[in-house]
């Protein structure tokens, strides 16, 4: 896709164009009707203009999500670029909403738009934050759960970038397993 001339001259371009989505749980409507595309961006400056304009994740109501995905990939398992993939999942304790949630989410976004996984960044589809009363969740989604080398590299780098200690482990789940099992039964495919 071609950028407007002003973007080329004045702003730092990103490797990918990204789309921010917002989900608000309204039980009277179908799941997909609750999912809205907020906007797309493809420069560092436009990312910050968006990020500084919207509510921090910690201020969203329970049941809401933000998702940031590469343009052209919808934030759902069914998308062809997601369906063979999975996610590295960070589960936060309730009290971490105030201390850690916004920092973790911002660092997650910066990992994505900065292509901080190097050539393995091609494996990334996006990231999701779920605001839930029983505990918030942040996940990065990759496109192929069987690519063990790429998936574990991404997991190790991600954990380091979030500043998680070595005693903490994070797990990777294939969407195919998440879709068919209840949360507590979903098997963890990889751990870092």
């Amino acid at each position: 896709q071609e950028l407007p001339l002003g973007e080329i001259l004045d702003k730092y371009p990103l490797q990918n164009r990204w789309a921010l989505w917002f989900f608000k749980n309204d039980k009277n409507r179908m799941w997909q009707a609750n999912l809205r595309l907020v906007t797309r961006f493809s420069t560092v400056e436009d990312f910050w203009a968006l990020y500084d304009h919207i509510k921090p994740a910690s201020k969203l109501s329970c049941g809401c999500d933000y998702s940031l995905f590469k343009d052209g990939i919808e934030p759902m398992w069914e998308d062809t670029q997601n369906k063979r993939g999975g996610r590295w999942l960070i589960t936060l304790a309730k009290q971490q909403r105030h201390s850690k949630l916004d920092c973790f989410w911002l660092d997650t976004l910066l990992c994505l738009i900065g292509e901080m996984f190097g050539d393995y960044s091609d494996e990334l589809c996006g990231a999701v934050i779920n605001i839930r009363s029983k505990g918030d969740k942040i996940a990065i989604w990759t496109r192929e759960a069987e690519n063990q080398e790429a998936v574990t590299h991404i997991g190790r780098v991600y954990k380091e970038r979030l500043g998680l200690s070595q005693e903490v482990t994070i797990g990777y789940q294939a969407h195919a397993d998440t879709a068919t099992k209840s949360n507590s039964l979903t098997k963890t495919k990889f751990v870092v």
Partner: peptide, 18 residues
Amino acid sequence: GTRIIYDRKFLMECRNSP
């Protein structure tokens, strides 16, 4: 091709630049 990679420090510095 060449990948455009930005580290965290650079991205954070861009936040408030004019």
